[in-house]
C-alpha cells in the first residue's frame, strides 16, 4: 500500500525529493504536500483502498508521512 501511495504522491502531488531516497517516516508536509494535495490524496486513497477517511481525522499526525498515512488507512478499515 505504501508503494501505491508513494507513487501517487510523487507522480501527482510533490516534486521536491528523490522518491527513492524518501523514507517512510520522512515529513511529507515539509516536502511540499499542501492542503490541495491532501484533498486529492484523500480522494485517491478512499477510492483505491475502499475506505472512508473521516474529515475530523485529517491531521498532520495522520497525513505527515507515508507510515502515518498507511496506519490511518488501516485504522479506517483497509485490511489489504
Amino acid at each position: 500500500m505504501k508503494e501505491i501511495l508513494k507513487h501517487f504522491i510523487f507522480a501527482e502531488l510533490i516534486y521536491h525529493e528523490d522518491p527513492a531516497a524518501f523514507g517512510d517516516d520522512d515529513n511529507l508536509l515539509d516536502a511540499g504536500l499542501d492542503s490541495m494535495g491532501i484533498m486529492r490524496l484523500i480522494m485517491f486513497a478512499e477510492k483505491e483502498f475502499g475506505v472512508t477517511l473521516p474529515d475530523t481525522e485529517i491531521e498532520p499526525d495522520n497525513v505527515g508521512s507515508l507510515n502515518s498515512l498507511a496506519n490511518w488507512i488501516r485504522r479506517s478499515g483497509y485490511a489489504g
Partner: peptide, 28 residues
Amino acid sequence: TMAPARLSAWLSEHAISGWYTVPSLLAF
C-alpha cells in the same frame, strides 16, 4: 491549516469575526 475540522472549531471557539486568506485553504 492541515487539520480542517479543528480549524473550523478554532474559528468558532475564538469567535473570529473576519479573515483574509487564500482560496486553497478556504476550499479545504
